[in-house]
Every structure is written in C-alpha cells, then in structure tokens.
Design a protein around this nucleic acid. Structure first.
Length: 287
DNA sequence: CAGGTC
DNA sequence: CCTGG
C-alpha cells in the first residue's frame, strides 16, 4: 500500500520517539503496529510503501499525517531563528501518535537507560508476554504481563520491574484509566501521569507528547538539556527549562524540541565519525 | 555513566 | 537504584 504523505521515516521512526522500529538492510523500517508486523519504505520525500496493514487512515494518523507541517514549521520558526534554520534540514520529520498504553508502559522503562537499552527492555517484554506475530511479538496488554509475571525477572528491567508490574496492575484493575488522559489538557495530563509511580516530569512530558497529542509538551532529556544551555543559555530545574521551551515555542513546542533533538543527534554523529572536524577547529583557533 | 525517579 | 555498553 502506497501512502502519499510528506514524511521522512529516518528521523521520525529512528530517533527515539518509538522504540520498536528497526532499520533493515534494504533501508526499510520494520516494526509492530497494532499487533501487526509492519514494514515501511521511503519511496520519495512524499510517499512511503507500507506492508503488513491495509489501514491507510490509521497508519497515516500514526505517522502524524494529520499535522499540517507547513503551519507548524512556520509557527515555531517565527518564534526562533535557530529552530527556523533547522527545519529545512529535516523535511518531513513528524511526531508519531503512539498507542496510549504502549507508550506509557515503554516510557516507564526509559528511566536512567540509554536508547539501546530501552529498546532491549521493550523487545524483551514483548517477546516474553506479547502475542506471537511470527517475526516479532506484539506489545503485551496489562493482563498478559500479569499472567506471565512469574518470569519477568528474565526481562532484566532492574529497579523498573516493580514499577512496571504495579502499572500493569493499576491499569488492569481500572484504578488507572489510560483513555481518560486523552480528555485532559496538557497540565492535567502531565499531573495525572506523574501520579504513577516511576513517572516524573520528563517521562510525563514524553507520554503527553507522543501518545496524548499535547503538542506544547517540551520534554527535557539529557540531550535537550545540553542544547538549551549551549544554544539559549538556559539552565535550571526541569520545570524551569521545560516551561521556557513551552513559552518560547508555543503550541507546537514539541515539534521544536524534535528539531533541536534531531539536529544535535546528527551533529554529534558527524563529529564522532569525523574526528578531523575537531582538529580543524584546533587549527583555526591556533591560527 | 546512561533519554530519571523515589 | 538494576543493568550493560
């Protein structure tokens, strides 16, 4: 199935928003979406070939296809020159609309772990408890996790394990109604999320942005924290830096965050691959 | 020490 | 604090 949409899969699927997409040797992306093994391949800047589902509307929505990129980019660009300069470099990057439960449970595991390790933990949890889909496993429901939780130690979640089980219990019992979060505005949503053990301000912002469509959320992770200091000279508490981002970039601050994140990701990647960039700077300085 | 949280 | 790159 071919989808005509301005979207760039590499920065959208491969930069840490969601954790189940793997890039295959042929350049396509394989992941699991709604318990279907889905493959997406970039055909042109404005079209992708999707295999594994025929839900055109659903997958388009998942890819953030309902967002008007032109409006969003113009809005965040007029608020900041630096972000404006980044948007051209990364056309078609979008914010995903992830499954509510999967996103929440995944980001609960994301504390104090690097991207690679988050992916390992998530994949392990899926392999242990999720539906067998052939090549991959689905993301488990709360019930599947609780039914199989005797062997959860094998997933090696560390100190996140008990939080993960407790979350599954609270959702399964109805104590937490995940769907109710989508009715809330940003402040309410983040506050409700932070009532969950193991979820602080950073994870709450990520889930509010990537699952519950609060596009003004501005999550501050280690990378963005450095960017905010280096580019804008902003330091301080999580609350302060995040509020600065929301106020500066406005209702689409989450998109601004993704552009800042992606630009830093690319520049660090280039620096580590090309050490002579550093020596060039030294030469220049000594000259 | 790592995309934090208790 | 768990665990692993």
């Amino acid at each position: 199935m071919r989808i005509d949409l301005e979207v760039s899969l590499d920065p959208t699927l491969g930069c840490g928003q969601a954790h189940r997409w793997h890039k295959l040797d042929d350049g396509s992306w394989e992941g699991v979406w709604r318990n279907q093994v889905v493959t997406m391949k970039q055909i042109s800047p404005t079209s992708v070939e999707v295999i594994g589902t025929d839900d055109r509307k659903g997958i388009t929505r998942y890819l953030g296809g309902d967002d008007d990129l032109e409006t969003i980019i113009s809005e965040i660009s007029k608020r900041d020159e630096y972000v404006a300069s980044l948007t051209d470099r990364c056309p078609g990057m979008r914010i995903l609309r992830q499954d509510h439960w999967e996103c929440l449970a995944t980001y609960l595991l994301a504390t104090n772990a690097n991207v690679k390790r988050i992916g390992q933990m998530v994949e392990s949890v899926c392999d242990h408890f999720g539906d067998d889909l052939g090549r991959r496993h689905g993301f488990p429901t709360p019930k599947q996790i609780l039914d199989g939780c005797g062997c959860i130690a094998e997933c090696r979640l560390g100190f996140r394990e008990s939080r993960f089980i407790t979350l599954a219990e609270r959702v399964e019992s109805g104590d937490i109604d995940v769907e109710s979060f989508s009715e809330m505005n940003y402040e309410e949503c983040v506050a409700a999320l932070q009532d969950i053990n193991g979820i602080g301000p950073k994870v709450a912002d990520c889930v509010a942005l990537f699952a519950f469509e609060n596009m003004e959320a501005f999550p501050i992770d280690a990378r963005i924290s450095k960017v905010m200091e280096d580019i804008y000279g902003v330091t301080g508490s999580y609350k302060a830096v995040s509020a600065y981002g929301r106020e500066k970039f406005g209702e689409y601050a989450g998109y601004a965050q993704e552009f800042l994140y992606h630009a830093d990701f690319i520049s660090r990647q280039a620096r580590s691959r090309n050490p002579c960039h550093c020596s060039w700077q030294k030469c220049r300085r000594s000259a």
